[in-house]
Design a protein around this nucleic acid. Structure first.
Length: 269
DNA sequence: TGTGATGTTGAATG
DNA sequence: GCATTCAACATCAC
C-alpha cells in the first residue's frame, strides 16, 4: 500500500513523535530486514543518538541521525512504523524496534518483508546510485513531458517507473488515469500536450489531496475511483463498466468508454 | 488442500 | 534502452 501519500504520512508521524529523543535501545527480531549492516552494527549506529531530521523522495523515507547518518525506510508492500509504550501493544510482524528515553517504542512491522532498511552515510550518493526520479509532487510539466516523449510504453507503466517519476504506485496510477480520463494502456508518445497536461495536473492534485488527508482512504472525495476499483459493477451516472487487465504484470482497473484508448498512429507534438 | 493474487523493487533475460 | 518475467515473502480468497 505505501505509495507517496502513505510514505508522506509516515514521515509526518515520525516528525511529530520520534524527533530529538535520545535512543536508548534497539532490538532486532529479524536480521534479514536490515539489508546492509548486522543487528549489532545497527544497534551501535542508533543507540546514544537522536533523530534530528527527515527526508522523503517518492516512496523513500529517510530518518536522519544527529551525526548525519541516514536510515532509509523503504516500506515495500506492507511496511509500517508503529508507536507504542506498552509491550502488549507490540504490532504483529514487528521486525525490530527502537526504544527512546521517554519510554516510547518505535516498532517496525512488515508482514511480507519486501522492505529495505539501509544505513547510509551519503544519501545523495545513494539516490544517484539507484537513479531515483524526481518526486511526483515536485516534477515540472516540462520534465514530465520528457518522460512520455516518443515512448511506446503504456502511460500507466511510465507513471509507476520510479526512475522517472518517484512516488506513484499501482493504486494511484489507476486513480490518475481515471480522473484524467485516459486509458492506462495508451502509448505514452501518442498523447497530446493537453492530455499530458491533464495527467500531470491530476497526478499532483490527487497526491496532494491524499497527503492532506493523511492517506486515509475513507475520507477521500466521493468521486474518486478507488472504491469502485474492485467492483465489476457499473459506475453511477452511466460512466461505464469497470474493466480489469494486466499491465506490466500489475492488475489494472479502468472504466471502459470513460477512458478512451489513445491510438498511437499519429504522433502529436 | 491447492492455486493464484496481493499495494514493493530489482535482477535477469532476450 | 526496452519489455517481460521472476524472485523476495506471508497471507487470504476461492
Amino acid at each position: 500500500m505505501p505509495e507517496l501519500p502513505e510514505v508522506n504520512t509516515v514521515k509526518k508521524a515520525f516528525e511529530a513523535t520520534a524527533l530529538h529523543l535520545p535512543i536508548t535501545g534497539v532490538e532486532v527480531h529479524d536480521a534479514k530486514i536490515i539489508r546492509n549492516v548486522s543487528p549489532v552494527e545497527f544497534e551501535g549506529t542508533l543507540v546514544g543518538r537522536t533523530f534530528a531530521d527527515t527526508y522523503r523522495q517518492g516512496k523513500y523515507f529517510f530518518a536522519i541521525l544527529d551525526n548525519g547518518i541516514n536510515i532509509l525506510f523503504h516500506l515495500g508492500m506492507t511496511g509500517d512504523l508503529v508507536y507504542y509504550f506498552s509491550p502488549e501493544d507490540q504490532p504483529k510482524y514487528e521486525r525490530f524496534r527502537v526504544r527512546f528515553a521517554n519510554q516510547l517504542i518505535l516498532g517496525y512491522a512488515d508482514l511480507r518483508k519486501f522492505s529495505h532498511i539501509l544505513v547510509l552515510e551519503d544519501r545523495e550518493q545513494y539516490l544517484r546510485q539507484i537513479r531515483l526520479g524526481t518526486d511526483a509532487l515536485e516534477i515540472t510539466f516540462r520534465d514530465f513531458q520528457r518522460v512520455f516523449e516518443g515512448r511506446q510504453t503504456p502511460v500507466k507503466i511510465l507513471l509507476m517507473d520510479q526512475r522517472r517519476i518517484a512516488g506513484v504506485g499501482n493504486l494511484y496510477a489507476d486513480e490518475i488515469c481515471y480522473q484524467a480520463r485516459i486509458h492506462p494502456a495508451s502509448p505514452a508518445g501518442a498523447l497530446s500536450r493537453d492530455q499530458l497536461k491533464r495527467i500531470h495536473h491530476f497526478m499532483q492534485d490527487i497526491l496532494r489531496k491524499a497527503c492532506e488527508k493523511d492517506a486515509y482512504y475513507q475520507v477521500y472525495p466521493e468521486d474518486w475511483f478507488w472504491k469502485w476499483r474492485n467492483d465489476k459493477a457499473s459506475l453511477p451516472e452511466g460512466k461505464g463498466v469497470v474493466r480489469k487487465m494486466k499491465l506490466g504484470g500489475r492488475t489494472t482497473y479502468f472504466v471502459e468508454g470513460y477512458q478512451p484508448l489513445i491510438s498511437g498512429n499519429h504522433k502529436q507534438k
